[in-house]
Amino acid sequence: MQDLTQLTSAAKQVSDLYARRFGVTRDAAWYLGKMTEELGEVTSAYLSLAGQTRKDGSKSDLENEVADLLGFLLLFADWQGVDAGAAFERKWGAYLTEDK
């Protein structure tokens, strides 16, 4: 299993390829827009899988969209200088230590 640092590095490599291939300028609108777009696609894939749309969905479709959302979240965090793993441990991990 890869850690978030490795996943972020892979996401940056793919993002660099995408930006060169399509002439994309990665700015706030791009990072935020892509995360929003991918969240919509996760929602759509889930609803299709759950039989709540006219289109039949698959678990693979949902997994692919979750992967896209995670990739863009990692890119956004990196762009903003946020260590997503450390932030997660600090924020969510605090709940694990409250009861001890």
Rank of each mutant, 00 (worst) to 15 (best):
D3L: 05
L4N: 08
L4R: 10
T5V: 12
T5D: 08
Q6Y: 00
A10F: 01
A10V: 09
A11V: 11
A11Q: 03
K12I: 01
K12Y: 01
Q13N: 07
Q13F: 00
V14I: 08
S15W: 02
Y18F: 13
Y18K: 10
Y18Q: 11
R20K: 14
R20H: 07
R26C: 06
R26P: 05
R26K: 12
R26S: 08
A28E: 14
A28M: 01
A29V: 03
W30S: 05
L32P: 00
L32T: 12
G33I: 14
M35F: 00
M35Y: 00
T36V: 11
E37Q: 14
E38K: 02
E38T: 04
G40E: 05
V42G: 03
T43N: 12
S44E: 15
Y46G: 06
Y46P: 05
L47E: 15
L47R: 15
Q52E: 13
T53V: 05
T53E: 10
R54H: 09
D56E: 13
S58Q: 09
K59I: 14
K59A: 15
D61P: 01
D61W: 02
D61V: 06
L62A: 06
N64I: 01
N64G: 13
E65C: 10
V66T: 08
V66M: 10
A67E: 04
D68F: 01
L69K: 08
L70M: 09
L74K: 08
L74I: 04
F76I: 06
D78G: 12
W79M: 10
G81E: 06
V82P: 02
D83Y: 06
A84P: 03
A87P: 04
F88M: 00
F88C: 00
E89T: 15
E89Q: 15
K91S: 07
Y95R: 10
Y95W: 04
T97Y: 00
E98G: 07
D99W: 00
D99P: 06
K100I: 14
K100C: 09
